[in-house]
Structure formats: structure tokens, C-alpha cells
């Protein structure tokens, strides 16, 4: 028996739709608001930050909602530690993406943002690859 409630999954669908609506709304607002209300630089920054928002949202949720993905074939403590590592790494990478997109000098903002999030993804994949390689040799 587990207390993991199926409504958690069902509740996630309206949340995901709300997030999508907010993102689309922000894009439409940026596109249609006259320059008096939104300077071109701010509009550009908002559009650059937006892709990082869902990444941040889902990275934050990884340790909470990602179920045991090794099918119980792993030490529960090690599996929990891996889930926390993945969540923290992707969250920090996503935060870096958002912060770089919002505040870094525009000439380097895109590259820096992509580099930070990409580095986080690379760290996660490297850790997973090492884990599975270790299990194959064990």
C-alpha cells in the first residue's frame, strides 16, 4: 500500500495546461503590447526567460513526483539520492538559464543561459551513464 494518491497525476494536467496558458499569454502580451508599455529590451528579455520557466517548474518537481525509475532493483537510499541529485542539478541549471536570460549582458545571455542548462543536463546524463555502466559490470 502506498499513500501516493492518483489525484497527484490528475492534478498535474490542469497545472500543466495553466502553465502553457501563462506562457502563451506572456508571448501574446509581449507581441501585442505597444512599446509605450513594454520596452523592446524588456520584451526581448521576457521572451528569452520564458523557455526556462517550464524547465524550472518540472526540475523542481523531479524529486517529489518522479517515481522509482529503477523498478526497485536498486538500494532505496541510493535511488532517493539519485533522484535528489537530478532534481537539484536541473533546478540549479534552470535557475541559471532564467537568471542569465534575464540579467546577463545581451551579447552573451543566450549562450550563457544555454550553457548553464546544458551543463546541468550533461552532468545528469553523465551520472546516469556512470550508474548504468557500473550496474552492467556489477
Amino acid at each position: 500500500m502506498t499513500t501516493a494518491h492518483p489525484t497527484n497525476t490528475r492534478a498535474e494536467i490542469p497545472r500543466a495546461l495553466l502553465l502553457a496558458a501563462l506562457l502563451l499569454g506572456a508571448v501574446l502580451a509581449v507581441k501585442h503590447l505597444p512599446p509605450d508599455y513594454l520596452s523592446p529590451d524588456v520584451a526581448r528579455r521576457i521572451l528569452a526567460v520564458l523557455p526556462g520557466v517550464p524547465a524550472l517548474y518540472y526540475a523542481n518537481a523531479v524529486p517529489k513526483y518522479l517515481g522509482p525509475f529503477l523498478g526497485g532493483r536498486c538500494d532505496p537510499a541510493a535511488e532517493q539520492a539519485l533522484r535528489r541529485f537530478v532534481g537539484w542539478t536541473l533546478t540549479l541549471g534552470s535557475l541559471g538559464y532564467v537568471a542569465a536570460s534575464a540579467f546577463a549582458p545581451w551579447s552573451v545571455a543566450n549562450d550563457l543561459a544555454a550553457g548553464l542548462l546544458g551543463a546541468a543536463v550533461l552532468v545528469v546524463f553523465t551520472r546516469l551513464a556512470l550508474l548504468f555502466a557500473g550496474r552492467r559490470h556489477a
Binding site: 526540475a59 524529486p63 517529489k64 532517493q80
Partner: peptide, 10 residues
């Protein structure tokens, strides 16, 4: 009991 915390909650 298992931990079930998001990064923000942690």
C-alpha cells in the same frame, strides 16, 4: 516512510 519533497520544499 520515504521523502517526497520538491527542491523548493527541501
Amino acid at each position: 516512510y520515504r521523502l517526497k519533497m520538491s527542491v523548493l520544499e527541501e
